[in-house]
Amino acid sequence: MEKVYSVPSTKHEVVGGFCPGCLHGVVVKLVCEVQEELGILDRTVCVVGVGCCCITARHWKCDVMNAPHGRAPAVATGLKRMAPKDTVVYTYQGDGDLAAIGLSEIMYAANRGENFTVIFVNNSTYGMTGGQMAPTTLVGMKATTAPFGRKAEDVGYPLHMCEILNQLGAPTYLARVSCDSSPNVIKTKAAIKKAFQNQIDGKGFSLVEIMSACPTNWGLSPLDSIKFMREKTMVEFPLGVYRDR
């Protein structure tokens, strides 16, 4: 019988490490599939951020470098510029890592038009540390550090990274996609592939923001989390291609 589906050869076969219903696992699989299809595994480096995103480190078969919290785009800058010309570099970051502590690093890497790929997973919370308020937490949404819900008059509004980065001149590709449904997973993979292909073609900075769920810290079942994404987070963060040059 023909084998039509398997774990990508570009991924270590290890136990996930993610909570049930978390979509990080889907994103990891998609990135690995893209690496397999592009045939770039042996010349690729992942710079992982800190948070749940660093759980992915055990999955990548490509080279992996751990950056301090939020600094992955800076590490990737030095690495990409000085590594052999055909090296493919991507950062894998969550929303706390990229949009809070690492906001400066991502803004400037994007503004310099660094030729690497950013995989940015947005689940509106700090997952690993236990559900604290993230820069992407919705107004009114409860978090362990916003027990009465996020109050805009106190802590402001969620940061929309694609829209913010779209103000800059240099970025090549900015897209927000989601892993809530099969059709969207297919679109997510296409966006990831484009973001890697752009780098291979020397076109510059590409970022894919991927909407995800955190059932554990949202206090919802995996299926209710998907519903919450469709009704709430994906409304606050509209999907779409914000920049494609």
Binding site: M65, A74, T77, G78, R81, E105
Partner: peptide, 26 residues
Amino acid sequence: GQFVQGESEVASINMVMGAASAGVKA
């Protein structure tokens, strides 16, 4: 070689780490 004016001290040392891990004296 390459020079980058970092956006901060923090970013600069991290860029240097990236270059060092690529095998370049930094």
